[in-house]
Nucleic acid binder design. Structure first.
Lengths: 161, 161
DNA sequence: TAAGATTGAATCCTCAATCTTG
DNA sequence: CAAGATTGAGGATTCAATCTTA
């Protein structure tokens, strides 16, 4: 009964200030990925999702990660990742092989060509992040943003540490 | 030359604090829409994008908006919106008709059935927004978030006022 | 049998015409 | 001809099997 009681105590709607903040946050959540996607598509001919996969592998030990972990960390279904990696493999940027220690894991490895692709496209992407986000925020706001974003991310994706 | 000079002065990479903030913001941008999408898909059998279209019409004068404005405000291509509204129209939630004053504008209008759909699905959606975002932020943080998000949104989508 | 991964069909989005109106 | 909107083809994602390995 305490749970139901607590739920009833909660407001059914958002306050004015929350509505205003939500309106702006929703704008960021919708438009920022669109802008970053457009930059990568135009300058590197890859999607933001594909870039994330390549970038994640580029910083992993031996440039290698299990498909399962890759899927979790990019918020991708296994199926979506499988299709995407198949495309990236066809481009020669990734290779796949069963893990030696456990044959039901598949290890995805970034090839030299794939590493070159990341090195090539990263500066433009980072510049876009700066241009669209950090160039306009004070040091104090960056700290506030980190705290607020971490709080939300811990709720919506607690497993991404 | 002053432009090139200024560009050279800019740092090529992000600072440590910016990287930390970016990591968290990226998590929010990727995962929050996925969580909201999942809730709407599960409880109302519509996508977040479709919900936005219906919700936007529900608050518009005469429950009516021109397709063009609807596309701009939802960050949708004209084509994507056209396809989506065709589906929503088939469900009986929206009707379309050329604008009387200018025949090349199309007015999309929310039907009674569509309004009922919004009324039905809004509480669950708003609860998800509270549960995933505002329940975990202080009043001060909500104000900070509004300011920061507005700053970014003004860069990536200045036309959405 | 369950977990990891893949596959193919159906659905949605993107992109490049096309159509219509002013 | 330009702006608003639609259409259909091609690509990407989702969903529901299926396959493989422990």
């Amino acid at each position: 009964v305490s749970n139901a009681r607590r739920d009833l105590d909660k407001p059914r709607w958002l306050t004015k200030k929350q509505q205003a903040a939500w309106r702006e946050l929703l704008g960021v959540v919708i438009w920022l990925p669109a802008v970053l996607d457009a930059q990568l598509q135009r300058d590197a001919d890859i999607s933001h999702f594909e870039y994330q996969v390549l970038a994640m592998l580029s910083t992993a030990p031996e440039r290698t990660t299990h498909m399962h972990e890759l899927a979790v960390r990019t918020n991708s279904s296994a199926s979506r990742l499988s299709h995407a990696v198949a495309r990236l493999e066809k481009q020669g940027w990734i290779s796949r092989a069963p893990a030696p220690e456990n044959g039901r894991y598949i290890r995805a490895t970034l090839t030299d060509s794939g590493m070159a692709k990341v090195v090539d496209s990263a500066p433009g992407h980072v510049a876009a992040v700066r241009r669209n986000v950090f160039d306009h925020l004070s040091t104090k706001q960056v700290a506030q943003l980190e705290e607020i974003a971490r709080t939300i991310r811990n709720v919506v994706a607690p497993h991404t540490e």
